[in-house]
Structure formats: structure tokens, C-alpha cells
Design a protein around this nucleic acid. Sequence first.
DNA 1: CGAGGTGCATCAGTGCCATAATACAGCCAT
DNA 2: ATGGCTGTATTATGGCACTGATGCACCTCG
Lengths: 117, 117
Amino acid sequence: MNPNRPSPNRPVYLKLRDQIAAAIIDGEYAEGAMLPSVRALAAEQGANPLTVAKAYQQFQNDGLVEVQRGVGMYVVTGAAERLRTADREAFLRTEWPEIRARMERLGLNPADMTMAD
Amino acid sequence: MNPNRPSPNRPVYLKLRDQIAAAIIDGEYAEGAMLPSVRALAAEQGANPLTVAKAYQQFQNDGLVEVQRGVGMYVVTGAAERLRTADREAFLRTEWPEIRARMERLGLNPADMTMAD
DNA sequence: CGAGGTGCATCAGTGCCATAATACAGCCAT
DNA sequence: ATGGCTGTATTATGGCACTGATGCACCTCG
């Protein structure tokens, strides 16, 4: 019935990526700490190690995690802050305008939206 | 770099569906009026007629448009209102909580978000 | 009746995603 | 040194969603 906006079949590696990013921002994966091995996280999430690796990859490309080959992947210091600010900017620039337009069309006002919906 | 939340490759038929829904809500496709033929809209949007048909299909399933075989598809009376209310409810129930959580994580507050940015 | 417009069904092709099974390369504690 | 843990590369395979092309059934109008 509804527009079903969030893509129905979000790829697993993207879900994992979001989930990991959230964990870093929240400090669940503390800076300097080693994040779960691809095999461990794969087993925990019921996914394939390669899929987890694919999710991890983007973070190392962005220099947010550091790979110590044969040891593990570690969260770089300052990763949480960098991640949050970059995320926020991207959100405001690309997502928010659409959301705002959508809400306006539906007769909703963000300013009126508090904890209670 | 960023989570890239809105699925990068949003399927065409979903984009069309959103676009059509918006047109109905805004009255651009008036109630009782016939909406563009699948071929016409396909040509205009540079898409495949089948893709447009797929976008239209959901509206007829929901009884928002009426098909006169061999003639065209017409917007049912009351479609705009029904569509908006259903959309709004769905938005508040499924999308908004996620958006709110996401904003909170990024240190944003909907109440502070006005027309600016 | 015939031409041109409708929606709709069918089949096939394409690309991304996820999985699997190995194998390799590096590090570390025992 | 050896076993066990890391990440990584390779190749192959299956599934699924999306797209594309064609043809058919139906209606309207002249």
C-alpha cells in the first residue's frame, strides 16, 4: 500500500556497514580497539565472511580502521568523530531535503515532532 | 565515505511509483482523470513500458486507480486523501523512528530543523 | 469493419548480491 | 617451530530483481 521508501531488499553488506558505523559512533567499538574478526562477525550475524569483509573494506578505504595483517582491524583514533561529522553532512545534504519534502507533502512538520510521534 | 543510506540504485519502478503518488496527492493527476498511458509515460521518462506498468500496478491493487481495459487508467475519487493518510501513517510507523534514531546518533534534533538547511 | 489507442502476459537477458570452497600470507603465543 | 588466529585472493555457482522486446486481447472512433 505505502511507498515503502526504504529499499525493501537492502543488501546485507550495506546493513552490516551501517551497523558497524553506528557501533563506532556510539563507542561500542571503541577507538583503538580491535573489531570483531570477519569470521567471528560472520558467524554471529549468520553471514558469509566475505560479505563481512566487504562491509569492512569501505572503512579501511576511508582510513577509519587500520589493518594489522595477521592480527586484526583496529579502530583509528578520531574515527568516531570523523564518521559522525561526515555522516551528518551527508545526511543534511542528500537525505534531509527529500525527507523534508516528503513530510511536507504528507502534511507533517519536523518542528512539531518530538519524542512522541 | 558515508553510509549512503538511500539505496544507491533505487529501482526505476519505485521511483516512478513515488513520483506518481506525489502527483496524485498534489492533484496533478486529478481524481477522475485518466493518467498517462504506460507507453506515453515510458517515453516521457525514458523507461520501459513494462516498468511503468509495474509502477501502476500497485495503485490498482490498492484500488486507487481504476482500469478500463483498452481505454486507460483513471484516478478513483478520494484517492488523493486515502493515499496521503495511508502514506502518513506508514511514514510515522516505519520510517520516522529510524530517521529519528539516525538523527539522534548524528547529534541532530528535528525540532531545531526549520526551512533552513 | 478497420486503424490506432489502451493494458497485460510471456519469454529472455542482464547484472548485482550472496554464498561456497579453497588457498595463501602474515602475526602471535605456546 | 608449530598450531591457531588474523585478513585476503581466487574461482565458481545460484538466486533474485530489474529491464527489455514481442505479441495478444480489449476498447473507441471514424
